[in-house]
Design a protein around this nucleic acid. Structure first.
Length: 306
DNA sequence: CGCGTTTGACCGGCGC
DNA sequence: GCGCCGGTCAAACGCG
């Protein structure tokens, strides 16, 4: 993800000040031509000047915000590369541990089987280690954090796929029940999903996916970007969505291509945590919200003039 | 009546 | 061997 590079072209709230200046000039010429310059006209000129100053200020704020976001994305990229390094190292270790475990298991089995020599054992363990690696890849587990209403007791995570609930259990570590889902395309698709409310934050649903779908997302084409009035923090960081008073205003701050709106819903655990924190820090900052609102209104004002 | 959800029973793995 | 715990099964139930 080259989020920092994309910012320059995509985080573009630049207000068209020149256009406003032109309008201002023409209106002033008209005023000069008009021999009846009254108080009302003077007031409107003053108002326009104030507006221009305000727009300049907002523009400056916008630039500062863009710089802040660029910095944040750079830091995020750095963290992500670090995370990838750590992950690849831990995955290597995991495979080693698994093959050692498997070897031990095979050794115990082989003790009961007569006529198997050590050579046989070593060759089969190599094959098994390959199989284990394959299984690790196939049994890919990913976790998704979804913001949900506290009052909403249903453990439903809208990810576009159709699921069939087959069980619910209260686990030891969490007072809220865990729901078990199978892909409705089962048995051809063996993907499973576990959904449970976070023990720390009841408004966060933790969905754990096991396996990979062998079919297309049935509602991917229909999937609306903004399906919930709440900010979907579980989405990929390359898209930020906001639903403003039901008008479904969607801001795609990073990606310009509208076809890239529907992002991969799944995210690695650490990535989701980062997204969660980034989103919460942004949304909880009243300065950011105010600046964003100002930038949006400026943009809308700009578009209505053209 | 069909389909999805609920919920108690059951099973297997793991630690003591 | 026993108990605990997470995961799964399947009968009962509810809804359209």
């Amino acid at each position: 993800m080259e989020s920092a590079d994309m910012l320059g072209t995509c985080l573009d709230f630049d207000l068209n000040i020149n256009l406003i200046h032109q309008n201002d000039e023409t209106s002033e010429i008209e005023l000069e031509e008009d021999h009846f310059v009254d108080e009302e006209a003077k007031v409107s000129v003053k108002k326009q000047k104030v507006l221009i100053e305000e727009l300049n200020r907002v523009s400056d704020e916008n630039k500062k915000l863009a710089e802040m976001l660029t910095m944040m994305c750079k830091k995020y990229d750095a963290l992500q590369t670090l995370l990838m390094d750590l992950k690849s190292k831990s995955a290597e270790k995991e495979v080693d541990v698994m093959s050692v475990r498997k070897r031990k298991f095979d050794f115990d089995d082989n003790k009961n089987v007569a006529g198997l020599d050590q050579n046989n054992y070593s060759s089969s363990s190599a094959e098994d280690s390959c199989k284990m690696q394959k299984q690790i890849i196939e049994k890919k587990v990913s976790t998704v954090f979804v913001k949900a209403d506290k009052s909403d007791s249903t453990l439903i995570v809208r990810d576009g796929y159709q699921w069939r609930k087959y069980g619910q259990k209260v686990t030891k570590d969490n007072p809220s029940p865990r729901a078990y889902f199978k892909c409705s395309f089962a048995p051809s698709c063996q993907v499973k999903k576990k959904v449970q409310r976070s023990a720390e934050d009841q408004s966060v649903l933790i969905a754990t996916y096991e396996g990979k779908h062998n079919h297309l997302n049935p509602s991917a084409s229909k999937m609306s970007l903004v399906t919930s009035p709440l900010l979907k923090t579980s989405l990929s960081p390359s898209s930020i969505c906001a639903n403003l008073s039901g008008s479904n205003l969607t801001l795609n701050m990073i990606e310009n291509d509208s076809t890239k709106h529907v992002q991969e819903f799944r995210a690695p655990p650490m990535q989701s945590v980062l997204i969660e924190r980034m989103a919460s820090s942004l949304t909880s900052d009243p300065g950011f919200s105010a600046a964003l609102a100002a930038a949006i209104s400026g943009r809308i004002l700009d578009q209505t003039r053209v």
